[in-house]
Amino acid sequence: MKRILKYSFFDMIRSRWSIFYFLFFLITASSLLYMSNDSSRALASLMNIVIILCPLIGTLFGVMYYYNSRDFIELLLAQPIKRRDIFLGEYFGLAFSIVISFIAGITIPFIFYGFGGADTLVNFLTIVVAGSILTMAFLAISFLVAMKNSNKIKGFGLAIIIWLFMAIIYDGLFLMSLFIFEDYPLETFSLAMTVINPIDLCRTLVMLQLDISALLGYTGAVFNKFFGTSQGIIISLFFALLWVAGPVWTISWQCKAKDF
């Protein structure tokens, strides 16, 4: 797996995509910092961008990368290499390079500007962790979607629908169901609803850490009340990581039953 990871990593890191991702976050983070001239306010804005864009870019890159490397994968399949190693090597090579671009892009401006305190540093790290988890989760989900759909248009469509659902439609449905069932105790229901959406999970995670209760929303408030801040952070982090592990594990067994 290491050898394949190495090839796909260096292939990716030299490519336009990771440079684009790096520059995007470099420019966004620096302009936020210099415009607001306040690192904690810049962080709050950055959070919103990270929570929506990391999943979107992860989705797009995951499908594109899979379809672009189909030829390479077919070549590898004829070599004495385990299937699992081929697919996981490809995935992790992609994921590491994208996550590194993201981290580098977002960190450099803060290093130049200064964090302005230990609190902000921890908050900043939380956003980095949340963004990395979201990137890796959505890369894995869309990689899987592309693997299952040999038709590119179908694969792209499906992956974008999944993102759209998790990032936008889900919240709407959730609020609507809260409204409809307002007479019932909904705490368990909303806990479950948060846990099954990685974007909600990461948003809750960051908000608990940043302690922005105004932005916490209903689910975050429930989370806070139910677990308390520190336990809430640990639990949301745990479930967010499951959103990376689950799809990656699915890739590793689904690839064994595929014809090429």
Partner: peptide, 29 residues
């Protein structure tokens, strides 16, 4: 598959590599 050489019907390669890089890469893999 160490003992198998395969020539696919449709030749497909990662396009951004050079010919010599491809040979080297396959040996390495």
């Amino acid at each position: 598959r160490e003992n198998i050489g395969y020539l696919p019907q449709i030749a497909r390669f990662p396009d951004n590599l050079k010919v010599e890089e491809l040979f080297k890469m396959i040996s390495d893999l």
